[in-house]
Amino acid sequence: MSENKQTQANLRWAEKNKEKKKYLNYRTMSRSFIRKLATEEDLKELETLIRERREQE
């Protein structure tokens, strides 16, 4: 079974952009967790972590 050109291009991009792909995957997982699974306690902890991170910058 041969892959189509778009699939091949996607694989080449992923191979050349490993760090960007990793960043995008983590961002997607984070957003999904917040939207679908996070409890109120989780959200409060995340707010604290975000506040601390912003203060570091």
Rank of each mutant, 00 (worst) to 15 (best):
L24S: 03
E52T: 05
K36E: 15
A9W: 04
L46T: 01
I50R: 13
E55G: 06
K18F: 06
E3H: 15
T48D: 08
Q56R: 13
Y23N: 15
M29G: 00
R12L: 13
R35K: 14
L11F: 08
Y26G: 00
E40C: 00
E52S: 08
E15D: 15
K20M: 04
L11I: 12
E57M: 09
S2K: 11
E3Y: 15
K16T: 04
L43G: 03
E52Q: 10
E55D: 10
M29K: 08
N25H: 04
M29Y: 02
S2Q: 08
Q6G: 06
A9M: 11
L37C: 05
K22I: 04
M1K: 08
E19L: 04
M29Q: 08
W13G: 04
Q8E: 15
D42C: 00
N4T: 05
S32R: 12
K22N: 11
R27C: 02
D42P: 01
E55P: 00
Y23I: 11
A9S: 13
E3C: 15
K44T: 02
K5D: 08
F33V: 03
K18R: 15
N25V: 05
E15Q: 14
K21I: 05
T48A: 07
N10A: 12
A9D: 10
K5L: 07
K18G: 13
E15S: 14
Q8G: 07
D42Y: 01
S32N: 12
K22S: 12
S32Y: 01
W13S: 12
E47D: 13
N25C: 05
E55R: 09
K36C: 12
E45F: 03
K18W: 03
T48V: 07
K44E: 07
L37R: 09
R51L: 08
T39V: 09
E15M: 09
E3I: 14
E55V: 00
D42E: 01
K21R: 12
L24P: 00
K20L: 06
S30R: 04
K5Y: 02
R53E: 12
E40M: 01
R51F: 02
L37T: 04
L46M: 15
S30Y: 03
S30W: 00
R31W: 01
M1G: 10
E55K: 12
M29F: 02
R27V: 01
L37E: 08
N10Q: 14
L49S: 09
K18P: 07
E19D: 05
L11N: 13
R53S: 14
L11P: 01
E15L: 11
E52V: 03
F33A: 10
K20D: 05
R53A: 14
I34Y: 07
R51A: 14
T7R: 12
R35C: 04
L43F: 03
L49D: 06
K5T: 05
L49M: 14
N17M: 08
A14T: 10
T7E: 11
A38N: 04
A9K: 13
M1S: 09
A38Y: 01
L43M: 07
N10M: 13
E47K: 11
N17E: 10
K22D: 14
Y23Q: 14
A9T: 04
Q6H: 12
K18T: 14
S32Q: 10
N10L: 13
E45A: 09
